[in-house]
Design a protein around this nucleic acid. Sequence first.
DNA 1: TATGTTTGTTTGGCATGCCTAACAATTTGC
DNA 2: GCAAATTGTTAGGCATGCCAAACAAACATA
Lengths: 172, 172
Amino acid sequence: MIHSNTSLSENLEDYLETIFHLEKVNKVARVKDIADKLGVLRGSVTGALKSLAEKELINYEPYSFITLTRKGTTIAREISRRHAIIKSFLKDVLQLDGERAETNACRMEHAMDKAAIDRLVQFIDYIHTCPRTGADWITAFVDYYSKKTPAREKCDQCMDACMTRHLESQPT
Amino acid sequence: MIHSNTSLSENLEDYLETIFHLEKVNKVARVKDIADKLGVLRGSVTGALKSLAEKELINYEPYSFITLTRKGTTIAREISRRHAIIKSFLKDVLQLDGERAETNACRMEHAMDKAAIDRLVQFIDYIHTCPRTGADWITAFVDYYSKKTPAREKCDQCMDACMTRHLESQPT
DNA sequence: TATGTTTGTTTGGCATGCCTAACAATTTGC
DNA sequence: GCAAATTGTTAGGCATGCCAAACAAACATA
């Protein structure tokens, strides 16, 4: 056994993520459910499961239920985390609708490395923490991209509101 | 000829983008240069070129120079635009170093659809246009993710500077 | 418990896309 | 113009990953 490679193809990452999700919902993953989720036929799933088992990421015996190993869980959790972070950025910051955020996140989660994801997390945090931004700044973004007319008075009001809120949060 | 399909694999998108770039630099793309850029052997390039030619995205005759067709240019320009936008976000907003921004952008450009890219463009615009954000807000982000200690006085100063700048930009 | 339905596996085939290595065309330099 | 170097193509192989369809196991229930 020279195998048990760490690096996963995008496809296998998808399988792992799906199993992770099914395990949470149903305690256990089944071939049919994986196939349905990923939109492939059951025969294709069996092949992928063999790969994952070879890499020691899942517990798999023919005809048995499927569960993640400790190692598999760790990796799947990370993939799942990426997915959630990216989706949150697309949905809550960029204001894409849920479905589009989901499909984009599904592909982007394989394309960003750890450094990029971690920085994105900090960026999202920053937007919500910095007194100059926050929820209303994001709301104003919707105005910006839909109307395309940033009226001066609106900016004045917005700035005032922002400053007021900051001053009110002043420690006594 | 039922072929000339529109949808491109990630790989073919990479070939197209590379040819686009080489064309700009050298007027014309050559097999060797494409191979070098993409880190594959020349034999692999020939196969890809046949695919692209079949889809009418490049002008290709064996042993001749390679150029993009009108259709190929349109698609390549869009891929290249995506790449530039994503890289700019990673580098100028998230403050990732150039190399990391580049490698992430290379993968992400295949993962984001037009709606997501267009919204990202607007978001970057917004950051630079909105008086509440701008260049110094991004600079402060660097502070945020490196120090992790957002001192109250710093926020006060930052808010003041922000407001002052806004008022100074007031139309007479 | 026997039987039909559902679920899982196997096999063979196909497409993509890479490699190696042999071969062919082209270009370069003398 | 011709040999040598460079560049491009072809052919055969391999890995991934899908499908279709035949087959096998497990389950459900009458």
